[in-house]
Design a protein around this nucleic acid. Structure first.
Length: 467
RNA sequence: GACCCUAUCGUCUAGAGGCCUAGGACAAUACCCUUUCACGGUAUGAACCCGGGUUCGAAUCCCGGUGGGGUCGCCA
């Protein structure tokens, strides 16, 4: 027997951006396929014509690309598969596994209201379901039929969920759901089933809001004589505050993380660890993740998003990142703020190099870089506090040395120390006033490194302003 | 309301009946390092929802309760 090739899919509906929950679902589906040398398929579920937009499709594609989740097939678009859906519906009608229902929306609404009043689970009552010896109501005028799936009424539908364990539904809980609307367009549960079948999906990894759809889909698959894939339902991700994420509350695009200064590998590592674990491992590459990933170490309960931990990972990955890459990020972000890195100024790469240990975020790094290019505003408070006569005298002494220094780190360092000796001051007594003079604030990277990156001309210019 | 899922430090989690005096990470606190802010290092505090079983033994298995969540669309 040839081993089954794993085929997973990510099937978002393009009604908005790719948010963090969708991204994790995509990541796990992708990782599972990669782990077993299988195929990862991207499918756009755009049958909700009213809410789907091309912008949302692009946003999803952009999000996937930013995260580096590459697909092997697709994107497939359900709207382009209508002929296939119609053919299957005709086939089911002919086979008797589906039937036409002429109940109007008003009648349905009334039925549901009645059921709810009786505290029952609202559901279709099967009035148009054909049965042996049953007289169907007369077909009404002016009502276009919907097509309903003839769901089994007895027995139990179950599956071994790879994250939640065995789940069973009594078929009596399931009603005959609509597979084609009155206008003929197919509905979600039906399209998913036909697509998963046609695309040979072996493992369906998706959010656990689909648990209740699963028995219906399994029954449909059975009616079609199709194999039933393995299911794995991922729990949801809650916001930082423990509240459910929604459009109104906390759900943001993955691209927002780019805007907010996060590195994709930090987001990926964080997401991987949210709801999945490999012993005590916290920090790992995607290559390592793919090697380790499995479904039975996925947590069955919901997880709360923790920005603090993401920040920590981001800081970690910034420290690891190449200076050149960070320099490029700085330039890109500076450009978005409206200015270019000057050719004759400090190098963005060098700025990144001496500051990447101090920041947890690319925007914070960019803020620092900006200070190297923009003449600082020095508050009176800082002037009074740090630019005393003694401090100025020390800075003047230092300026004299810097004017003739060879602009190398070691010599800059030596110059500062020489000034300390000459003035009898301690390092902070010179370094802090110098920071105030150069940046208008008391913190920076090691001051000798700052000088080496800022350059002689700019350094002396800034010092002159306060002396 | 019905059905389904779920429950270990504040948070993410390890834990597959004895290895648990419940481990790691983020966050917190303290100390160390230090050229400031950070980084880094060390240490400390912090949890098995409740009640019944099963068992020589339960965080782990079973039942019930409670809390949390999901779903009940001619949305996906």
């Amino acid at each position: 027997m040839t081993p089954m090739t794993v085929r997973t899919r990510f099937a978002p509906s393009p009604t908005g951006f790719l948010h963090i929950g969708g991204a994790r679902t995509a990541l796990f589906s992708w990782a599972y396929a990669r782990r077993f040398g299988g195929q990862f398929i991207l499918r756009i579920e755009d049958t909700d014509v009213a809410r789907s937009t091309p912008e949302a499709v692009q946003a999803i594609l952009d999000g996937m690309a930013w995260l580096g989740l590459d697909h092997d097939q697709g994107p497939y678009y359900q709207m382009q598969r209508m002929d296939r859906y119609h053919a299957v519906i005709q086939q089911m009608l002919a086979a008797g596994t589906a039937y036409r229902c002429y109940m109007s929306i008003d009648e349905l609404t009334a039925l549901r209201a009645e059921q709810e009043a009786r505290k029952e689970k609202p559901r279709y009552d099967g009035r148009w379901r054909p049965a042996e010896g049953k007289a169907l109501p007369p077909v009404p005028e002016g009502i276009a039929a919907v097509v309903r799936f003839r769901n089994p009424v007895d027995g139990v539908t179950s599956w071994d969920d790879q994250v939640k364990g065995r789940i069973e539904f009594s078929n009596s809980e399931l009603d005959d759901f609509i597979i084609a609307r009155a206008d003929g367009t197919p509905t979600y549960n039906f399209c998913v089933v036909v697509d998963d079948y046609d695309m040979g999906i072996t493992h369906v990894i998706r959010g656990d809001d689909h648990v209740n759809n699963t028995p219906r889909q399994i029954n449909l698959l059975n009616a079609l004589g199709a194999p039933v894939p393995v299911y794995a339902h991922l729990s949801m991700i809650l916001g930082d505050d423990g509240q459910k994420l929604s459009k109104r509350h906390g759900a943001v695009s993955v691209m927002q993380y780019d805007d907010d200064g996060y590195l994709p590998e930090a987001v990926l590592n964080y997401l991987a660890r949210l709801g999945w674990s490999h012993g005590n491992e916290e920090v790992f590459s995607m290559a390592q993740f793919v090697e380790w990933f499995d479904l039975n170490h996925v947590t069955a309960s919901a997880a709360q998003f923790n920005t603090e931990k993401l920040n920590w990972l981001n800081a970690h990955y910034i420290k690891l990142a190449d200076d050149e890459r960070l320099g490029t990020e700085i330039s890109r972000r500076l450009k978005m703020r409206g200015f270019d890195v000057p050719n004759d100024g400090a190098s963005a790469t060098a700025i990144a190099s001496i500051n990447k240990d101090r920041v947890a975020n690319l925007n914070a790094l960019t803020d620092i870089a900006e200070q190297f290019y923009v003449m600082p505003v020095i508050s009176d408070e800082l002037k009074n506090l740090h630019l005393s006569d003694a401090a100025k005298a020390a800075l003047k002494d230092l300026r004299g040395r810097l004017e003739s220094a060879d602009w190398q780190l070691a010599e800059l360092s030596a110059s500062i120390k020489a000034s300390l000796t000459a003035t009898g001051l301690k390092m902070p007594q010179v370094a802090i006033p110098l920071r105030v003079a150069l940046f208008g604030q008391t913190q920076s990277a090691a001051i000798d490194k700052v000088l080496s990156v800022l350059g002689r001309e700019e350094t002396l210019k800034r010092m002159a302003r306060v002396l």
